[in-house]
Amino acid sequence: MFSRTLRAERIKLHHNPVWLAFLFLPIIPSVMGSFNYLQNIGILQEKWYDLWSQQTLFNCYFFLPALIGVYCSYLYRLEHINHNWNTVMTMPVPVANFVLSKLSSAALMVLLTQIWTGLLFVLSGKLIGIDTALPPELFTWLFYGAIGGIVISAVQLTLSLVIHSFAVPVGIALIGGISGLFASAKGFGVWDPYALLSLGMEANKAGSTMQCSCSQFLINSLMIIILCISFSILWLKKRDVLTM
């Protein structure tokens, strides 16, 4: 049953150009971050680690959360328009399956973006002539970053389910990203769902240890995801749908 719901989600996204944004967005920080790195090469001595910070800092705090917001808004816009809620709610499919399949779609996009970010990082580093070995933490950064991204997806999907507007959740995501910057600076980033992405990717201080323990990171992430999924399921079960 779940795999069929997932397939339905994939069909809904067929020929959708959303992936273009995910393809192009990581290119901007990798090009401009590398350029910035080359300009400050006198101060930046830690090679791959400095390049990583240059490329991911702005991206993690300000734009990846908002871009995930755009994707999640789009996923629910499909249901908000054309009276689609009537169809969705009368299908013999448990609401939980529907909610989980939305989250899986978003999670897949986050995973692909992380892989693409990693590839661009290695490529740009080689192109600008960093000759030392790749940082062994790269895989960990991408992995925890992906988890942080999935947490943001869960929050944004919940917002887009409740708020029918396309743009408002995106604005909230940008504000959320900025809140992540403050939360991390004050040391409680692990409690802010929007800070988990940059925390996981160690965007502001690559090479040091994460601000919190890995287990706390994972527990908090899981907690937020479960909370969002439960809220969405309850919302769909208890509230009457509003079609337009």
Binding site: V18, V70, A167
Partner: peptide, 14 residues
């Protein structure tokens, strides 16, 4: 609206 918002985000990042 995904088109316009994505352009807005790319612009902000740039």
């Amino acid at each position: 609206q995904m088109v316009s918002l994505s352009v807005g985000l790319l612009g902000g990042l740039m």
